[in-house]
Write a protein that binds this DNA or RNA. Structure first.
Length: 264
DNA sequence: ATGCCTATTATTAATAGA
């Protein structure tokens, strides 16, 4: 079972790239962020024609998240994080698929930092961390994936010195991520590739992709009830080189199916 | 130190992204 996360940076603006990638890669589940489309402008028909059923939470201009499942309807279990009913941003949606609870999140960017946007980022992080703890307490297979907008360590970026004034790399952001993972989550890509430079985002600026000046900010966190099934993880870097592409690349994991697990 | 580039919304400039 292949599960991917992809910050599309405009689901309509980059629809051709999304459809081409879906056709090539054939993931079973996809979490999308930055739809940048209101609820009624989600390209449901095009995605259905590609073989995927979807749930989504749109928003005009910014944010927006979706979960796609190949050949089946995702069973929605939540939209919006608990803790602030007034929060107007569409940044969290959750579904049950094949007995796995999948949370798709788009954590706030937080720039410029410090400032009110950074405060919002840390507040949102707190809500996520609190909610994540309740998920772990249920002792079920859970995957929290998406654009965390956090560079976890110096090793997760091309040149740490150029990110020190950025909300993605602020000590508070990294500490919040560290605390979240320390609840008992497995950072899937780092787990399987502890010594590899892995990037999921490259600036449109500065010729960043050809220079491989990237950062790792799209993450998969696995609960202990699903982590043992992790068999592969990676980034579809090629997609970042396509014409009219997002500044993120699709990031994915592969899980052993339960029936196979019993054999090994 | 700053802007670089790109998408969206709304009119050619502002805002946000990271």
């Amino acid at each position: 079972m292949k599960i991917a996360t992809y910050n599309v940076n405009g689901v309509n603006g980059h629809l051709p790239v999304l459809l081409r990638w879906l056709a090539d890669f054939q993931p079973d589940v996809v979490c999308l962020q930055e739809l940048k489309a209101p609820q009624e402008k989600f390209p449901e028909t095009a995605i259905l024609n590609a073989g995927y059923h979807a749930i989504w939470h749109g928003q005009k201009s910014w944010n927006g998240v979706a979960i796609l499942a190949k050949g089946q309807q995702p069973k929605e279990t939540r939209r919006g994080l608990p803790g602030d009913p007034e929060d107007p941003h569409s940044r969290y949606i959750e579904a049950e698929i094949n007995g796995i609870l999948i949370g798709c999140l788009y954590l706030p960017n937080g720039n410029p930092a410090p400032g009110p946007k950074f405060d919002y980022k840390l507040q949102w992080f707190k809500r996520l961390t609190k909610y994540a703890k309740t998920l772990l307490a249920r002792e079920i297979p859970v995957i929290l994936t998406g654009d965390y907008n956090v560079i976890p360590t110096e090793f997760d970026c091309h040149k740490p010195s150029s990110w020190v004034d950025d909300a993605l790399f602020f000590p508070e952001s990294r500490e919040a991520y560290r605390k979240l993972v320390a609840q008992g989550w497995t950072d899937a890509l780092r787990e399987l590739h502890p010594n590899e430079k892995i990037f999921t985002y490259w600036d449109y600026f500065r010729n960043a992709f050809p220079r491989n000046a990237g950062i790792r900010i799209d993450h998969f966190l696995l609960s202990p009830q699903i982590a043992p099934q992790l068999i592969a993880a990676g980034v579809d870097r090629d997609v970042r080189s396509w014409d009219k592409t997002s500044d993120h690349a699709p990031t994915w994991i592969e899980l052993k199916s339960k029936t196979h697990r019993k054999k090994s």
